[in-house]
Write a protein that binds this DNA or RNA. Structure first.
Length: 649
RNA sequence: GGCGAUGUAGCUCAGUUGGUGAGAGCAUACGGCUCAUAUCCGUAGUGUCCGGGGUUCAAGUCCCUGCAUCGCCA
């Protein structure tokens, strides 16, 4: 079982990516990074589901073809993932020709085999719901959702003989208790399977729907939802003949798993396995099911929610802390609440205080007492050293066990117990006291050695959840994170290597600031209606400390291009080199005071970590500093020249 | 309406097959340290284990019922 295949659902393109999509995909990314760390061959697939009536409607609303519409939203999904440090190996679309071919192939096979049949049936059809209702489902003869009377429609369609595989599936689940996990979801499926299954309607006549995959044996119909959507897991592996299919699904080393949210349990826990049985394809090994994020919880959504969507919080607090929060806060399988407040709490307690501070204090002591050079392997270890090592091994075992079961929150909890033990280890040994007594130099060496090795080890175990941050941690430690040695419990840092003392990796978020932020947002929405009211009087500016100032990333930039913004008399669109891969676009309100030509080549100071904003249709990534009095605006510049991107403070 | 899940300290959750005083983290209060991002370490509390009824020597843990929240209903 060395080849690990993990999929997310393919996301329906009737909505833009939101926190639910992000959560599933971040979990999958974390899991696949973990499996890679263990040395397994890994394939991680996500993608988009693009057919169906809703897409036709949505496209029509925007006056475009379904294909065009699907392209646009699908790209939106594909482009969201790298921004969240998510790196899928494959992005599949149900409009891909190879997917269409695979769907038609399986439909033809099952039709030939007699598992798909044609049948006429009549029923109460609710136009609003686009579905048929059984008599017992109706409320006093009307649709329970729309409260309208359904129309009786008689229609012919194709059906999949799902009922034929019901018992076989029950047997399979009985033999493989963790086929569907956590347990609660297996129970749900099993209890559903105790009732007789009805066959699955898998087609729509083209008179009602054309945006779909045509039935290979009847061109009057397209296939509806299930075969189209679920088959992506196989078509993405070039089923039936591809090497990938062999390696990741059918072969003896294959371990294929799905990850879904609980709302699509039935299609994945019942339809999909029975479809696989019918097609003679082996079943996946595990269906992993997670819960829902409740967003409208507490004040946050009211005060800040208008301004900040959950996904935008990743930009405010950092992608990796955002990932950590999602992984740690939700007990896998259960529902959880999402709010900015909870995110900040988690960030400060776990990341800033426990981990960030440990990292900082250890590297700082190494730097102060040993010039950042890692001491040699100590001949004599302090008594608590063995305990720390034992805990490390214990933690490693627990961490791996939980990760294998998708219990991310427990894996991280166990890692944090070790981080906490490291902090206790510092206090117990008091390196600052040892440093004052030259006779205790060896003891000090031993303590620092243990702590540095612990940090390296933490860095590795953290890397699946926080790939970006652990990369910079590794850099400070001169650690090659890709060695994967962390999982073997050995010391990874070489004695004598030079460690750096980095800036705080998780600067603490001041809660007062958060409150102030929320208050500001509230104020903003309130004053929006009476915009004209007044300009804010310049009251006394509150005193801030150096840390607060340090949160503003000021950089030296060189203006490459400058031109007016159409339809705005005050704005200039500037292209500024900040020493990054690509120059940035920055919009500045100085058009009345500067001729664009004069700005080109000028060195300016840019607020580099300002939240991007769209001004007159131009997206601005930063702000140019300028001084102004009642009549004039003057851009800040340098009399000498320095490299673009230099830090200003 | 049908099926299912959940309801344990202010918050988020653990509590194995019913059995020694009901736990953890965060938040709160107090004390200690000073290497560190006003961080870390230690100590302290609080709970009609959703309500009601039942089984049992013994129930947060099993049964019935009510309430609340959530999901699914092809």
């Amino acid at each position: 079982m060395n080849n690990f295949y993990l999929t997310t659902p393919i996301y329906y393109v009737n909505a833009e990516p939101h926190i639910g999509h992000a959560y599933t995909t971040i979990l999958a990314d974390t899991m696949t990074r973990f499996q890679r760390l263990r040395g397994r061959l890994v394939r991680f697939q996500t993608g988009t589901d693009e057919h169906g009536e809703k897409i036709v409607e949505a496209a029509a609303k925007q006056g475009v073809e379904p294909r065009q519409y699907a392209d646009r939203i699908s790209h939106m999904f594909a482009e969201t993932w790298p921004g969240l440090n998510i790196a899928p190996d494959n992005f599949i679309r149900t409009t891909d020709s190879k997917h269409v071919a695979a769907v038609q192939r399986v439909l033809q096979d099952l039709y030939d085999k007699g598992d798909i049949y044609f049948s006429r049936y009549g029923g109460n059809y609710c136009v609003g719901c686009e579905r048929f209702y059984l008599d017992r489902e109706l409320l006093d003869g009307v649709c329970p959702d729309h409260l309208t009377k359904p129309v009786f429609i008689e229609e012919e369609n194709y059906f999949f003989k799902m009922s034929r595989y019901q018992q076989q599936l029950l047997d399979h689940i009985a033999r493989n208790p963790s086929f569907i996990r956590p347990e609660r979801y297996r129970n749900e499926v099993v209890s559903f399977l105790r009732e007789p299954l009805e066959d699955l309607c898998i087609s729509r006549p083209k008179t009602r729907l054309t945006w779909g995959i045509e039935m290979p044996f009847d061109n009057r119909f397209v296939t509806y939802v299930w075969f189209d959507a679920l088959m992506n897991y196989l078509s993405g592996l070039d089923w039936p003949d591809g090497d990938l299919y062999q390696r990741f699904w059918q072969g003896p080393l294959a371990d294929a798993q799905h990850l879904i949210a609980k709302d699509i349990l039935k299609p994945h826990g019942i339809y999909w396995p029975t479809m696989l049985m019918a097609a003679g394809v082996p079943l996946y090994s595990h269906l992993n099911v997670h819960g829902y994020w409740k967003i409208n919880d507490g004040k946050m959504s009211k005060s800040v929610g208008n301004v900040v969507k959950p996904l935008d919080l990743s930009k405010v607090y950092g992608v990796d802390p955002f990932r950590y929060f999602l992984l740690r806060e939700m007990a896998f399988g259960l529902d959880a609440s999402f709010s900015e407040e909870l995110l900040v709490e988690r960030y400060n307690a776990d990341l800033a205080n426990d981990l960030g501070n440990l990292f900082s204090r250890v590297l700082n002591m190494l730097s102060q007492y040993r010039q950042g050079v890692l001491p040699a392997v100590p001949a004599q270890k302090p008594p608590a050293s063995q305990d720390l090592l034992a805990l490390r091994e214990q933690t490693l075992a627990a961490y791996q066990e939980h990760m294998q079961r998708f219990e991310f929150h427990l894996a991280l909890t166990s890692l944090w117990a070790f981080i906490s033990a490291c902090n206790k280890y510092v206090v117990a040994n008091e390196p600052w006291s040892l440093a004052k007594d030259p006779a205790k130099a060896q003891q000090l060496d031993a303590v620092l050695y243990d702590l540095a090795q612990a940090l390296a080890w933490i860095t590795v175990l953290l890397s699946p959840a926080m790939p970006g941050v652990s990369q910079s941690m590794a850099q400070a430690l001169s650690l090659d994170i890709n060695l994967g040695l962390g999982l073997r419990g050995q010391d990874m840092l070489k004695a004598g290597s030079q460690l750096k003392r980095p800036d705080p990796i998780f600067p603490r978020i001041e809660s007062q600031k958060v409150q102030a932020k929320a208050a500001k947002a509230e104020e903003k929405t309130e004053t929006k209606s009476n915009k004209k009211a007044k300009k804010e009087p310049m009251g006394p500016v509150p005193v801030i400390d150096i840390d607060e100032f340090a949160r503003i990333d000021l950089r030296l930039g060189k203006v490459l291009e400058a031109c007016p913004v159409e339809g705005a008399d005050k704005l200039l669109k500037l292209t500024v080199d900040l020493g990054e891969e690509k120059p940035r676009t920055v919009v500045s309100g100085i058009a009345k005071h500067y001729n664009p030509q004069r700005l080109i080549g000028m060195q300016v100071v840019v607020v580099a970590n300002l939240k991007p904003v769209v001004l007159r249709g131009v997206e601005s990534h930063g702000m140019i500093l300028a001084a102004s009095d009642s009549d004039n605006i003057k851009v800040l510049t340098l009399t000498d020249s320095l490299a673009a991107g230099s830090r200003v403070k």
